[in-house]
């Protein structure tokens, strides 16, 4: 099985990259002057967000491919990546909250970026609610593909609208823009590591979805 091998390779890659990433984040990256050590959440938070974005993009593309090719393998890919994306989006919201408390002195702020992730989170929860309620396998795939597409194209509109909405209200102090070169490099490595993690989790879930499919088919066969 090709997927099995890719999963193993990625797993061993992560076994090396993850500890190295943590080492870089906690030991090599300099402490931010104003925010202090809490700023190190940033490396995790941003990487998770990029991973979620990659996963939802994959859902979008797979959904289109499903409607086009009508092959259930694309539905498995769409739902597997939506699940990975949802997991990451949840973690983004939690880590964002844990960052906001010490820095902005609030657990939650109606920052356009946070708001966009929260709304996305709702959309993909809806995606799974819809899937849970439809018994027919093909219909489930078809209908959730529509949500996978509609939800994704909403992202830029939500982003733009929330940004404009915020610009009317008083802005909370933003984090300082400048990252020093070491920080940038650590950030880059962290991003790469989490993108590998995203692909790994996706493939892991995808393999499960495929094997579930096979079980259902065999079950039907034995019942007949």
């Amino acid at each position: 099985m090709k997927t099995n091998r890719t999963i193993s390779i990625l797993f061993f890659l992560l076994l090396v990259m993850m500890p190295l990433d943590f080492y870089l984040i906690f030991k090599v990256a300099p402490t931010e002057r104003i925010m202090g050590d809490v700023q190190r959440i940033f490396y995790l938070h941003v990487s998770l967000a990029s991973g979620a974005f990659l996963a939802f993009t994959c859902t979008f593309v797979s959904s289109i491919l499903f409607l086009w090719k009508k092959n259930l393998i694309w539905d498995s890919a769409a739902s597997a990546s939506a699940e990975t994306g949802l997991l990451f989006a949840t973690l983004v919201l939690i880590t964002g909250s844990l960052w906001a408390r010490p820095i902005w002195n609030v657990w939650w702020t109606w920052d356009p970026r946070l708001l966009t992730v929260l709304i996305l989170w709702f959309i993909y929860v809806g995606y799974f609610l819809l899937r849970g309620g439809i018994a027919d396998r093909f219909k489930k795939a078809q209908y959730s593909a529509v949500i996978g597409i509609i939800g994704y194209i909403d992202i830029p509109v939500i982003r733009y609208a929330t940004k404009w909405w915020k610009s009317i209200h008083p802005l909370l102090t933003r984090e300082g823009g400048g990252l020093n070169p070491v920080m940038k490099n650590v950030m880059f490595f962290s991003l790469t590591t989490f993108l590998v993690l995203t692909v790994f989790l996706f493939l892991f879930r995808f393999r499960l979805a495929r094997i579930e499919e096979r079980l259902q088919k065999l079950k039907k066969l034995t019942e007949d």
Partner: peptide, 15 residues
């Protein structure tokens, strides 16, 4: 603020 930092990484790792 050590707690928040450790908290964030722990939650992500556990998740």
């Amino acid at each position: 603020n050590w707690g928040y930092l450790v908290g964030a990484y722990t939650v992500a790792w556990l998740g």
